[in-house]
Computed example of a mutant assay.
Amino acid sequence: MSKSYQKNQKRQPQPTPEDIQPIQIDETILTGPNNKSKGNQQEHLMVSMANVLEQMESLGLLDPEQLMQEFGDVDQEEFEAKIQKILGNREIYVDEANLSRYLKYLKKNIQKPCYLTGTEEFLWEEDYLFGEGSQSKYEKLKKTQPSYTDVFTLVKFSETLSEIDGLLVEVQRVSDQKTFVLPLADLEVTDENSPNYQLIEDYLMWFLNCM
């Protein structure tokens, strides 16, 4: 998801607390039906997530039209076929085995130098940007912590795999050469004309939609 969409969403007027109704989430998302196949679990999860998205849209927390503009007209079947080819596997859900396959694919195809920046503010920055965190402290912390506004060069992919964070990458900040290990899903390529850009965008769409 591009940075521009996520920033625009944060600028939208937000509903007041009294207007917000609890979003109903099917508990089987967490527990899973005991006697269902993995395929049926995925189908059940997709239906439940669709209900959550509908509720978010009704509360003004999601703009599907703008989201589609950001991603473009993606042909779902074509995209799934593309991911199946990348993974060499008909099952494209995110798990350790598929993360390992995607890691090998990216290591083989990413061209260096590869310059990256944050897709949105990192978790540690949220209180300083949208909460009551001190701006002076924020500027001080940015000297030792990675910021979404920084530009990084990709150093290497980590061999550590996480079904929660996905693939991890070691990056070096261009401004001061400090190194960090960050989830690849939190990053995007700075140059949209680079062949690396689509590689990372495809990974991001797969990770967010199939986890």
Rank of each mutant, 00 (worst) to 15 (best):
K137F: 08
E126V: 10
E125C: 01
E77W: 10
V94W: 03
V74A: 09
L184F: 04
I110P: 03
E132K: 15
K143L: 09
E170K: 15
L161H: 02
P146H: 08
I110C: 04
L106S: 06
E159S: 15
K104H: 10
G166H: 03
V94M: 04
Y93M: 09
Q66T: 14
K108D: 03
T160F: 11
L168T: 02
Y148N: 14
Q172K: 13
T117F: 02
L87V: 02
T190R: 08
V171K: 05
D176E: 09
V155I: 12
K107D: 01
E70D: 15
K82L: 11
T179H: 12
E139N: 15
K112V: 09
D150K: 12
G88S: 07
A185K: 13
E120Q: 11
N109V: 00
K137V: 09
I92V: 12
P183H: 04
V169C: 05
G88N: 08
E65F: 13
L87M: 06
L141S: 01
R173D: 01
G88P: 04
Y102D: 00
T153Y: 07
Q111R: 14
F71V: 15
K140W: 08
L116R: 02
E170G: 04
E159F: 11
F79I: 04
V189Q: 02
D73R: 14
K85V: 04
E70S: 15
E126Y: 13
L123W: 04
